[in-house]
Write a protein that binds this DNA or RNA. Structure first.
Lengths: 340, 340
DNA sequence: CGCTGCCAGGAAAGCGCTTACCTGAAGTGT
DNA sequence: ACACTTCAGGTAAGCGCTTTCCTGGCAGCG
């Protein structure tokens, strides 16, 4: 690998001059020399060693992002927003998949710190896990103490900048709509109970039902993996256990799609015999049959705002800027009146 | 940010000893000192500066990946395979989205070189663009000349290790199946014509039709964006222009989903009035209605093999290992006999 | 008891780059 | 013509870390 010294030697100049022309320094360099340096760069196919540059000029320009899994459509959207803002500002982003493993999340925070990133965005859901949360907070504090910036998406314990989707409102919206259509026997298919996302969505839904005096018995609620297959399995179990249900609420669209698949397989017509609703309004929601009634979350915007918070210092006064992005109900075909 | 020197000072040892303790060097260190160093690390919340480490110990352990867009389901799958192998071998991966912009692809190769990555995997499709290809090859050659390893997924001009999906075979399978079911008026909705992926899929399809003496007139073929909306738009145009078609071949599943959506909107029943087939077998293919008949490509495997090639030196003898991964037809419901 | 050999720990030389500071030559004013 | 700026270009000091090589102390040996 050619080094700056090689370039300088070949161009017959000092490394300082070579560096200056390569980086377009403000210090003037004679055209003649500049020319020679550029030629040497081309001939040697020189590319600066990024690590050496970062060491010498501690100008942290990359930002780290921790998500559960970029290839999950939910995070794909959020990441798109994150990336857009970062790119607009000339920042590179390092994306880390935690696969919902708290240990891995911790490791990544550490790793990103070692990479000297300018900011860390935690884009995965928060966990109900005091021990983990304490450790995470500790690590983030250490990072922030050295000038690192942190922003989180969703409800985390971490005090500081955050942007969150109105998960509770979304849950409530769903509940109210269900009630409006006469549903009283409602089954809920939730994701991992350790996620604050789940707590919040469920909380909103529960509140809506409670307001109407409609009970949500514990056995109408199933926790499962937060994906298609988890949804299908939970739906199967739920249907077997509680035959009287008229509607199934899946706490994200992936699960809802699984629910739909299971229902189709069992020959249950949706929404005539059973209503199904999802959450998130993933692209797929519009393409399944029947199209999914769901709650739309501005995911791209969520990412974009989070990155903006992470990159903008924020007036020193206001520690902890918190933005809540609205949830809206999207009515499609999978939710109908309760059969009677 | 605490440095190694800080740790050493606080522990009352030399930086050398601190480094040895922290990296678990083979050189023995007295328990007493080790203890002190570890304590100092904890107290200062010390995390080694990754850049400094890479400079001092040029042990390239990260690998770079260039894809079109990780959040596209196709690349999400490929990336999953890539990641799995990389993680198994303790390698970090940097993922770059080129968004099908050749310039950006070039920039990323350069950037990855600057990052001193151990290997670069080009996971996007190749382009039919002599100028771009030449520049890319040049850059990759420069990288390889300094010991970098390169592997590509798909058909690229780049000579060297490659793994490719049997796109042509897949196209042929689709063609044969269509013919078997009596289709003769076939419309094709292709993605960008500059992609080798498109050329190959189309080539296989064309070959199958040609073998049966069935023509594929140019106006039955539309090039569009390689996504859902592109598929929908092209389908609309195609239907308007060629009313006699009995089947629509979309060259990937995203487009096929768009086609399905358009057909639904126009009240065309699938497959009774019009057959639709896709390509790739994305997860969504099974969930749309009617479920999509498509060609399955082992995408995760594709990524996994590519990463394996990139990380395994390969016996010096065989330059350019090429693996072809098979395509298989997946029969579902969107393809039926041609209406007569 | 003096010598060699061994070993834990430290000093210091880089890794490749940037940049503050220095230098020497050319340009300016009187 | 001389002192004084001005300025292009070079010198060298780091950035934070690893690792080679050296040192000084100790045990083991004759």
């Amino acid at each position: 690998m050619a080094t700056l010294a090689d370039v300088a030697r070949r161009a017959g100049v000092s490394p300082a001059t070579a560096s200056r022309v390569i980086n377009g320094s403000s210090k003037p360099v004679a055209d003649e020399l500049r020319e020679r340096v550029l030629r040497a760069v081309a001939e040697l196919r020189y590319v600066p060693n990024a690590h050496a540059q970062l060491l010498a000029r501690p100008q942290r320009s990359v930002v780290g992002v921790v998500v559960h899994d970029v290839s999950d459509p939910y995070f794909a959207e959020v990441t798109r927003g994150l990336q857009r803002v970062a790119t607009d500002r000339g920042r590179l982003v390092i994306i880390c998949n935690s696969y919902r493993d708290p240990e891995r999340e911790l490791e990544y925070v550490e790793m990103l710190r070692g990479q000297q990133v300018a900011a860390i965005v935690l884009a995965g859901s928060g966990y109900h896990d005091a021990d983990f949360t304490a450790r995470l907070t500790e690590k983030l504090a250490a990072y922030e103490a050295t000038g690192g910036r942190v922003a989180v998406v969703g409800r985390h314990e971490h005090p500081g900048d955050a942007v969150m989707p109105a998960n509770d409102v979304g849950g409530r919206l769903l509940g109210e709509e269900l009630l409006r259509l006469g549903h009283r026997q409602i089954g809920v298919i939730a994701g991992p109970r350790v996620l604050t996302t789940i707590t919040d969505r469920l909380g909103g839904l529960r509140a809506a039902l409670a307001d109407a005096g409609v009970p949500l018995p514990e056995d109408h609620l199933r926790y499962a993996d937060f994906d298609r297959d988890g949804g299908a399995r939970a739906a199967a179990a739920l249907l077997d256990a509680c035959p009287g249900l008229t509607a199934l609420v899946a706490l994200n669209d992936s699960m809802a799609v699984g629910v739909l698949a299971l229902l189709r397989q069992r020959g249950v017509r949706v929404p005539e015999q059973m209503s199904v609703v999802g959450f998130d309004d993933m692209p797929v929601a519009a393409d399944v049959t029947p199209a999914l009634t769901t709650v739309r979350l501005p995911l791209v915007e969520l990412g974009a705002r989070a990155m903006t918070l992470a990159l903008d210092p924020g007036s020193a006064g206001d520690r902890s800027r918190v933005e809540v992005l609205p949830a809206t109900l999207v009515r499609r075909e999978s939710l109908g009146p309760a059969p009677r």
